[in-house]
Amino acid sequence: METLTPIPILPMFFSMFLSIYLVAYYIVFRNWSPKHRTEASSCLISLAHGTPAVVLATYAIATQSPRGFASPNTSFQNLVLDFSIAYFSMDLVHYLIFFPNDILFMAHHLATLFVFLTCRYMVFHGAFAILVLLVLAEITSACQNTWTLANARRADVPAAAKLYNFLSPPFYAFYSVVRGIAGPLFIYEMGVFYSSGAADAVIPRWIYVSWMVVVVVAISVSMLWISNLWVELYRERTVRMEKKVR
């Protein structure tokens, strides 16, 4: 088995995301309103995590041998897990300070951290499945965060409104395919494997059952969120068409 990634890498990654957040808050978005300033700073660290996480996780999965739902974690996979643990920890701090009433989002981050931490520091197996889920979760990150930033300023910046209107349909479609088709198919494969008991020797049952509960709830909430956005988009387009007719 490969040597585990040294623990100090985790605080290093956390410091990196904290630095990005501070630069975003005090320099990049300093002229934005207080509410949008904090949201935009969170988006920037999400951008710094999302696409790099997809690239790193994809490489970690592709170079793993043997590869499987119960395979031992490689050193590089542990590094990718630490990278994501640091991001979600930093973003959780952001919500605790600025949006302490956003229970749903904080619960999402805590549940995600539970999955990553148990995989990385408790069972040392199963990173293949967790990293595939990470890729599926973060592959839409760049588009989603750009859309979020445009949405935040569309009321007072015409260019932001145009970007928001341009991005909405393709982003919704991309997100729907990833979370509504690819995600559930992979989660089904996970469920079939773990329910067979093939991982019991290396991953305690209560842990992989917890993982399954977390990912099923997460995908369900994601689909509810994107469904509401589709409904809102339809209403906006309908109102716009009615105004043109009048």
Rank of each mutant, 00 (worst) to 15 (best):
M1Q: 07
E2V: 04
P6Q: 08
I9G: 07
P11Q: 07
M12P: 00
F13Y: 11
F13G: 01
F17G: 02
L18G: 05
V23L: 14
A24Y: 02
Y26I: 15
N31M: 09
N31K: 15
S41C: 13
S41T: 15
L47S: 08
L47N: 06
A48F: 08
H49E: 15
T51N: 05
V55P: 09
V55K: 05
L56Y: 07
A57S: 14
Y59M: 12
A60P: 07
T63E: 11
P66A: 13
G68W: 01
S75T: 14
Q77W: 05
N78T: 09
L79Q: 09
V80E: 03
L81W: 00
L92I: 08
H94W: 12
Y95D: 06
I97Y: 12
N101L: 13
D102R: 14
M106L: 11
M106R: 08
A107E: 07
L113E: 03
V115M: 06
T118S: 12
Y121S: 12
Y121L: 14
A127N: 05
V132K: 07
L134E: 07
V135Q: 05
L136P: 02
A137L: 10
T140I: 10
T140C: 10
C143H: 10
C143W: 08
C143G: 12
N145D: 12
T146H: 06
A150I: 04
N151D: 03
A152R: 11
A152P: 05
A152N: 14
D156T: 01
P158K: 09
P170Q: 03
F171V: 13
Y172C: 13
Y172W: 11
V178Y: 00
G180D: 05
G183N: 01
F186P: 03
F186G: 00
E189C: 09
M190I: 02
S196A: 01
G197L: 00
V202C: 01
I203W: 00
P204Y: 00
W206V: 04
W206Q: 10
Y208N: 01
V209Q: 04
S210E: 04
W211R: 00
V216M: 10
V221G: 04
V221H: 06
S222G: 10
S222E: 02
I226C: 03
V231E: 01
E232V: 11
K243C: 11
K243L: 12
K244I: 13
R246A: 13
R246I: 15
